[in-house]
Design a protein around this nucleic acid. Structure first.
Length: 294
DNA sequence: GTCCAGGTCGCCT
DNA sequence: AGGCGACATGGA
């Protein structure tokens, strides 16, 4: 990997195991728009990014200097050796071969904790396009204006401070439905208990999960998403309807309980559970594995 | 119209 | 511990 900055842009050259489109569209984040072939606009960490992939290079438009570039390199998790992760997983589990082959460019983003928490509270019992719509509505209503591209105005995902005054009704106006009180509870805890990345430092995965599950509307699955996507616990293995269907079919040949699946994931994937989960989820959802066709 | 969606809660046995 | 309906909203 090599970083070159010139005339307002930064180019990151020779990135292994990375596909911008796959990384954004695998279902881990919700604030992006595709504007061309391998070209995206995304809102993250309070900023707007216009990026395009050309082969093994990634162009970050309007990004100047090492500090800014490093920020995005960290966001895309580009300094991690995914070749090693894939080899480990394939060594343990031949079933993953096809998923890893087709979804080879997925990386797990290092997203902001509070954004992941609130986004995944919204995600329950909803389809991904609708989750994106709701998250955008909340950002437009409470977030900071961060730019306009192709006539579309973008707002950052709101900070905790920007959300403290939000009422249940405000969230309902953003079409959150029955999740509105959950969001209020989460925001008030984030604010009053100063709940942030720091407050999870040093906690074991299980301790961190229990802490998250004290929040109304956060169960096992959402807690695991927050651990994985927002707190850096790469062993966390969220089990949703898709994982349940896919793994029931592929690994058990029958319907399997979340507990059974969790156990298998722990034994097979161990510290790399989160990566395995993303490959399986994205591949399985794309190919509708285990889904009844009506 | 009916069913289901990156689930969780509350209440039941 | 495990089963089951309710919960808003929108798309298939």
């Amino acid at each position: 990997m090599e970083i070159i900055s010139d005339n307002n842009n930064t180019v990151i050259k020779n990135i292994d195991d990375f596909d911008l489109g796959q990384t954004l569209e695998c279902g881990q984040c919700f604030r992006y728009d595709k504007i061309g072939d391998k070209e995206y606009i995304l809102a993250a960490k309070g900023k707007l990014l216009h990026a395009r992939q050309e082969g093994v290079d990634l162009i970050l438009f309007g990004v100047e200097g090492k500090t800014q570039a490093n920020d995005w390199i960290d966001y895309f998790d580009l300094r991690r050796d995914y070749g090693k992760i894939k080899r480990y997983l394939l060594n343990r589990d031949e079933e993953l071969r096809e998923a890893i082959r087709t979804k080879h460019g997925v990386r797990i983003l290092n997203q902001e904790f509070h954004e992941v928490l609130l986004s995944f509270i919204i995600s329950q019992n909803k389809q991904i396009p609708h989750i994106r719509q709701i998250v955008r509505a909340i950002s437009d209503k409470f977030g900071t204006f961060i730019g306009e591209i192709n006539g579309i105005k973008y707002h950052s995902f709101p900070s905790v401070n920007q959300l403290v005054s939000a009422k249940e009704e405000d969230f309902r106006n953003c079409k959150t439905g029955f999740r509105a009180p959950y969001l209020c509870d989460a925001v008030s805890r984030l604010h009053q208990e100063q709940l942030d990345v720091e407050s999870f430092k040093g906690l074991k995965e299980e301790e961190a999960r229990q802490k998250l599950m004290e929040i109304k509307g956060v169960g096992e699955k959402i807690a695991n998403c927050v651990l994985l996507f927002g707190l850096g616990y790469r062993s966390a293995f969220p089990i949703d309807v898709w994982i349940k269907r896919i793994m029931g079919e592929v690994y058990f040949g029958r319907e399997a309980s979340p507990a059974e699946i969790q156990k298998l994931a722990e034994e097979r994937f161990g510290e790399y559970g989160g990566y395995a989960q993303q490959y399986i989820f994205y591949y399985g959802r794309d190919n509708k594995i285990g889904k009844k066709t009506r």
